[in-house]
Write a protein that binds this DNA or RNA. Structure first.
Length: 984
RNA sequence: GCCCGAGUGGUGGAAUGGCAGACACGGCGGACUCAAAAUCCGCUGCUCGCAAGGGCGUGAGGGUUCAAAUCCCUCCUCGGGCACCA
């Protein structure tokens, strides 16, 4: 594998051969040069970073962004930098296309691993974090990534998180105006109350309300608010988690600990206010359909209606339900509330209804309705028992039980407003408190879940949509199933005969007219749980008095993390343990005597008061919601980003030339952030947009999700992974020593023990080879297996490229200025055209293939004793530069250029050399290629046909076929492409 | 179950209606060498055939078309997302 001979004298190796030793020397030298000459310092047009020695600030702006990494202690493996290399190649290409390119790398450095390491070692997480950042910077530098070093903040920098806190305050100090459909400053809400445009409680004028009432009224509108909500409490981590951080199995995404639903007071961000805009604006983004679909599904918009069902015998009460099928109300034969629904306590009967209720049905289903929970006591006892049963079940158990329906009748009845019949009310855990109204009308005839429940509990089933002909129409319990398709309404009075869409419309109109409901939209998306009981995160800029939370004035930022020694959140196996954040132990910090000037409705103006600080911290997503904005203006101490600078970078265009709506031109990162980071960041950006701090509607215009690098992983007889590096192949089987092992493929990493370190690749081939190999493996978006033995191919290319320009023995340039033959010229310009086009679409693998072809052609010239023409060497080096920048800089320098090629123009193809005089095209007979003929470019169809018929093989075949009785039916000519002669 | 995406030589992949397998790895053969490495040249989808040449071929089956890896339908397999969301 080593490019040097393992034995033999050193004189065997030409002194100036491009091998790992030379590559490493070249790479280090050019990395030093780029730093020293500030080659990749990108100027802004205005503000603090406007210094512009190269005069490029007025070029069209392009902002290229990577999802910034978490600075882990274990360092990079070769799977990590795939996206970083791709954005680097693209950035360098765009710079050579005459753009002003912003490309930088920051660090997402708050979070659990640093904190857990701190817990183990007692070392402050800031220390390990900074070490890890330094280590990662070094590893990135070795790859030759062209980042502006001034623009790479860490989210843990106080100068950075000060602005994270500031943005949180903007969110806190805002409310969502549903009429204007945007966020507005909270002071304007007070204006609306004072002006009487918004109703106050009991119609008391806003200024006549007590301070507490004023504050509670206003707080209820804020985009950041404290609420007691059922949250995902993870005692094993000692913290609560966002829905997005909980796996479908009901465990923590990180650590895989069990997660329990508990009502707790927590900070929430009102992302649901943006549900519609988060869906609608996807249309203007250049993202893959799959990511857009994932976001749409996550937000989960459903249209339908809310309907009120009066509670029998309780004229003051009704049960509100949400349904997407208002056309089926005539088939609603029972109702189900979520077990924790607040109405349950109010309407649960004290006694089971008497037998007389069931006389007309002939049989008494009460015992079935009571089920196992209602057998031995009155309804309140059944409710209590069922609630205990449902709460005890973890989400995992629910999953395991599948769709087995459980529940219990609560002794109450509601009235179906359409049939006017009383229908029984149940509680069941298949109805979720968190969605819709937490209650449903059950329509077993048209809903599979309701059907199963109805069968289980002996409830009546009424079909209200006529099933299509191929559908089992047996509606008896056990005989049929729910019909969810379209068809004419039946058993539905005034809807009968209408199809679903029309029936829905008609029913909604009826409901609105008769006061039983209205059209409605619901979402699966919940508000964002924003508190974490951890140390290593951003402190909230919030204090509490006896009334509630108070936002700190901007002047009091940053709120720095207090120095403590015990970083560990209290973890437990006990689901009933309460969260206890580490910051609560910093008692001297928690208590703060402050004078906050401002309006009383915001909690201000109380003179010097001792407040208690918020002891939760923000989740890791906070810092990553806006880091790209800080890249624009990283040293600004007066604003998170100068609006003029944001406008400058937001003014670019999309690939098709139309104006962009997203700030970042190209964002590359892993698909694992499809709904977490990407949704949160869009939400924050839109709040900042509404408040006038940014000019762009969206953060990320074009998104590319890179695939993973996979690698062979090996398991022994026990199924344990073994170090892939220790495995040998013998006769198609795999062994560690004498032990046979099984091979499969998986994402490269620590857990599968199949990581390959970039350092090993540098040592053996150099960074340019690694860059080129990762780009050559396949399209950026697809996952592909790492295969160390394939690297030699791209390494050979670089060696040949070097050899074609530099004499391996003497180190002299072997380039001359003799005229270039036409074949070479045509190939050069075809290559330039193809590579340029591939760079735009980031098809780097095919761009590299084209460069191989051109270089192989030069190798063949060399075989014939021809030196490489300078007119080819120059553009070839420039085309290689974005992909393998170190060797390109070195060759560029040896070609006699004094300065970096980073700002040279990317070669442009001369159209004159792209056209040829004649072209070889296939001739098909009956759609099968039989021969090839050469025709002049621009020849007419008749000439094509004549040439095809004149071709000996074709002529012979035609004669043969015609002799057999066939005749020419059609001659299809696509000029310059092919001729197809069809006989029959 | 629902929603995406993918399936092409021994391998990674190319071709998005017009010559299937560009480019690369691997393999085979050759040149150079005492020899090896490195380098360079040639061949390399399967199959029948001494050859010339023929047949087959992009997960399976069907369809549209002069022409399908590419478009449509049905199915299979793999990957990803969601999942009692009313």
């Amino acid at each position: 594998m080593n490019t040097q001979a393992p034995t033999g004298s050193p004189t065997d190796i030409p002194q100036h051969r491009y091998n790992a030793t030379l590559a490493n020397e070249i790479e280090r030298r050019w990395q030093d040069y780029w730093d020293a000459e500030r080659v990749f310092w990108t100027p802004n047009r205005t503000g603090l970073l406007a210094e512009d020695p190269r005069g490029v600030a007025d070029r069209p702006p392009v902002f290229v962004l990577d999802m910034f990494p978490y600075p882990s202690g274990v360092g990079l493996h070769v799977g990590h930098p795939l996206g970083f290399i791709a954005t680097d190649v693209y950035s360098r290409f765009e710079r050579m296309r005459g753009r002003n390119v912003l490309h930088a790398m920051g660090y997402d450095a708050f979070g659990l691993p640093a904190e857990q390491y701190a817990v183990q070692t007692g070392q402050h997480p800031r220390v390990t974090t900074e070490q890890n950042v330094a280590n990662m910077r070094r590893q990135m530098r070795a790859l030759g990534l062209a980042h502006d070093p001034r623009r790479g903040p860490s989210t843990t920098d106080v100068a950075y998180y000060r602005w994270t806190q500031w943005i949180f305050l903007q969110i806190y100090n805002s409310w969502y105006d549903d009429i204007a459909d945007r966020a507005r400053p909270i002071g304007e809400l007070v204006d609306e109350f004072r002006a009487g445009r918004f109703e106050t409680p009991n119609d008391i004028a806003f200024d006549d309300l007590g301070t507490t009432e004023q504050r509670q009224l206003i707080d209820a509108y804020r985009l950041a608010y404290v609420a007691e909500v059922p949250v995902n409490w993870c005692p094993g981590l000692g913290t609560v988690l966002a829905n997005e951080e909980v796996t479908p199995e009901g465990r923590s995404d990180r650590g895989n600990f069990p997660v329990y639903k508990r009502p707790l007071k927590q900070w929430m961000l009102r992302i649901t206010a943006y549900s519609d805009r988060l869906i609608a604006d996807l249309d203007q983004l250049d993202w893959s359909d799959s990511i857009k679909n994932m976001q749409r599904n996550w937000i989960g918009r459903s249209t339908g209606a809310t309907i009120s069902f009066p509670v029998s015998g309780r004229e003051d009460l009704s049960i509100d339900v949400f349904t997407t099928r208002p056309d089926t109300v005539f088939g609603a034969t029972y109702m189900v509330l979520a077990p924790e629904h607040p109405l349950v306590d109010e309407i649960t009967a004290n006694e089971w209804p008497g037998d007389d209720l069931f006389n007309d049905t002939g049989s008494n289903p009460l015992d079935m309705w009571k089920g196992i929970f209602g057998l031995t006591g009155p309804p309140p006892e059944a409710v209590a028992r069922y609630r205990a049963f449902a709460a005890e079940k973890s989400d995992l158990e629910r999953q395991a039980e599948g769709k087995e329906k459980t529940g219990v009748f609560i002794g109450a009845f509601a009235v179906n407003p359409l049939t006017t019949e009383p229908i029984p009310v149940f509680i069941a855990d298949y109805v979720l408190m968190g969605y819709g109204t937490g209650a449903i009308m059950a329509v077993p005839g048209q809903d599979e879940r309701d059907w199963e429940f109805a069968e289980e509990f002996g409830l009546p089933i009424v079909r209200t949509v006529q099933p299509s002909a191929d559908f089992p129409i047996d509606v008896s319990a056990g005989g049929g199933k729910a019909y969810t398709g379209d068809g004419p309404a039946i058993n539905s009075d005034f809807l009968d005969g209408m199809h679903v869409a029309e029936a829905k419309q008609t029913m909604i109109a009826w409901l609105e007219e008769n006061g039983y409901g209205a059209g409605a939209i619901t979402y699966k998306l919940r508000d964002w749980l924003f508190s974490r009981q951890r140390y290593w995160g951003e402190p909230f800029p919030i204090v509490y008095d006896e009334i509630g939370p108070v936002g700190l004035p901007e002047a009091m930022l940053p709120v720095e993390l207090p120095a403590i020694t015990d970083f560990e959140p209290k973890t437990s196996d006990d689901p009933d343990a309460m969260p206890e954040p580490p910051l609560a132990r910093a008692t001297h910090w928690v208590e703060a005597e402050l004078t906050l000037d401002g309006p009383a409705w915001a909690g201000y103006g109380r003179g010097p008061v001792t407040y208690l600080r918020e002891t939760n911290t923000m989740p890791q997503w906070a810092g990553s919601c806006w880091y790209y904005l800080r890249y624009l203006d990283p040293t600004n101490e007066d604003a998170f980003c100068d609006p003029a600078v944001e406008r400058e970078w937001g003014a670019g265009v999309r690939l098709d030339g139309s104006p962009k709506v997203g700030l970042v031109d190209l964002y590359v990162g892993g698909v694992e952030h499809a709904v977490l980071h990407l949704l949160y960041a869009r939400f924050w950006h839109k709040v900042l947009y509404d408040l006038g701090y940014v000019s762009t509607l969206e953060p990320f215009q074009r998104l590319v999700n890179q695939g993973y690098i996979l690698a062979a992983a090996y398991t022994d007889e026990r199924g344990m992974h073994v170090e892939a590096a220790d495995v040998e192949e013998r006769g198609g089987a795999y062994f560690v020593g004498d032990q046979p092992v099984d091979r499969d493929f998986g994402k490269m990493g620590k857990s599968l023990k199949n990581a390959v370190s970039p350092d090993d690749i540098y040592d053996e081939y150099g960074a340019d080879t690694l860059r080129l190999y990762e780009m050559f493996m396949g399209p950026l978006e697809t996952s592909r297996p790492w295969n160390t033995s394939d690297i030699i191919g791209v390494h050979r290319f670089l060696q040949r490229l070097w050899r074609n320009l530099v004499d391996e023995e003497t180190g002299a340039l072997r380039v001359d200025d003799a005229p270039v033959d036409d074949d070479t010229k045509r190939l050069l310009h075809r290559t330039i055209a193809a590579v340029g086009a591939d760079m735009v679409t980031m098809s780097f693998n095919t761009a590299i293939a084209r460069l191989f072809e051109l270089n192989n052609h030069l190798t063949q010239l060399a075989q014939r004793g021809r030196r490489t023409p300078r007119a080819v060497a120059t553009p070839l080096v420039l085309m290689v530069a974005p992909l393998a920048p170190h060797i390109a800089e070195e060759l560029w320098s040896r070609l006699g250029h004094a300065a970096t090629l980073a700002y040279e123009s990317f070669p442009e193809a001369d159209p004159a050399w792209l056209v040829t005089e004649s072209v070889e095209i296939p001739v098909q007979v009956n759609g099968k290629v039989r021969a090839k003929v050469t025709v002049a470019v621009g020849a007419d169809e008749a000439t094509h046909e004549a040439a095809a018929r004149a071709e000996p093989k074709v002529a012979a075949l035609l004669a043969d076929l015609e002799g057999g009785g066939a005749s020419v039916k059609l001659v299809k000519v696509v000029p310059g492409r092919l001729v197809n002669i069809v006989l029959s």
